[in-house]
Simulated assay, not measured.
Amino acid sequence: MKRALFWLYLLAFYALCQLISWGYIFIKYVPERKGMIIGEGMIFLAIFIMAVIRLKKHLEHERNYHQQQTNFLLSVTHELKSPLASVKLYLQTILKRDLDREQQQMFLGNSLKDIERLDYLVENVLLATKLENRSFSFPKEDFELTELVNNVVDRLQKNACKSQQAIVGQIEPGVMIYADKFAITNVVSNLIENAIKYSPPCGHINVLLKKQDDKIIFEVADFGEGISEAEKKLIFNKFYRVGNEATRKTKGTGLGLYIVKTVLQKHEASIRVKDNTPNGSVFEVIFGNYAS
């Protein structure tokens, strides 16, 4: 990237020198056309400067995108290796040691949680790949959104905290929707997983599902550190993660909210981020035309 910018600046300097040189020669030998030469030279210079600025921005964008892809690959590698190593260790312990039934059940339960993490990661990557294909269409069907949200909450509740209920649901019964069940499951899972990741240990997560007129409202609220106004505009970008690589401690690939935003756009639904009280964030999803 630095080499490309160096050559860009060198080319711009060379072109500018040539413009001044040819302008001087034209004015010297055709002085009566001095005004026209200066005018056209200024127009050319303005267009040239604008082109250089746009090219520089494009190169910087490519550099940032490449860096994000590199971070994504590193994150995915870590996300894959960590649960695999954990499952391997649990199974080796079960095979090599004479454990009682309760210990075996605990180790197998922990292994299942790690496998669910792997499954969640693979689903995200597969769905993100499908979304890149513009011809991909969502197979929609009527299903009960209430049941889907309850199932996701129950699954994540087991992994969120052992000492107390971490996810508090206000879920209206019998809410139906016409949508892609797999994609919407991914949306619900990503938003609740995200809230858990950015909340204090055993912090409460509020999940709301209700029908309001002809709309369906789904909200996930956490009481973490919250999201700054500047980052609210960026969090739905592909590979983007809150914070910087040096200080970030939470796990993730930067795909979750990108998938959420893209899936909802495909379903003509909207999402917005609000500040929670006294602290934290609220992700509000509104389904309109797809309410059944």
Rank of each mutant, 00 (worst) to 15 (best):
H61I: 06
M42T: 08
D275G: 04
N289W: 12
V30N: 14
N159K: 15
M176C: 04
F44P: 00
L234C: 04
E225Y: 11
S292P: 06
L19K: 07
I171S: 03
R54P: 00
K197T: 01
M1R: 10
S270E: 13
L257H: 02
L264K: 06
M50H: 07
G226V: 03
T146V: 01
K130V: 03
M176Q: 11
N64Y: 15
E116H: 12
M42G: 03
A51D: 07
F283D: 02
Y290H: 15
N289G: 09
M176A: 08
K113P: 00
F218H: 03
F182Y: 14
L91T: 11
L108Y: 06
C202I: 03
G226R: 05
Q92A: 08
L112E: 11
N276W: 11
V149L: 04
K232H: 07
M176G: 06
A166P: 00
K233L: 05
R63E: 11
H61W: 15
E229G: 04
I286T: 13
V282W: 08
F107P: 00
D222C: 01
P201T: 05
Q265G: 09
Y290C: 09
S137T: 15
H66W: 12
F223A: 03
V149A: 02
Q67L: 07
S86K: 13
N64A: 11
P200H: 13
A221E: 15
Q105Y: 14
E147T: 13
F48N: 05
I20N: 10
F287S: 00
L234M: 15
L257A: 00
N237K: 12
E284M: 06
F26C: 06
I53H: 10
T93W: 06
N186T: 10
Q157G: 08
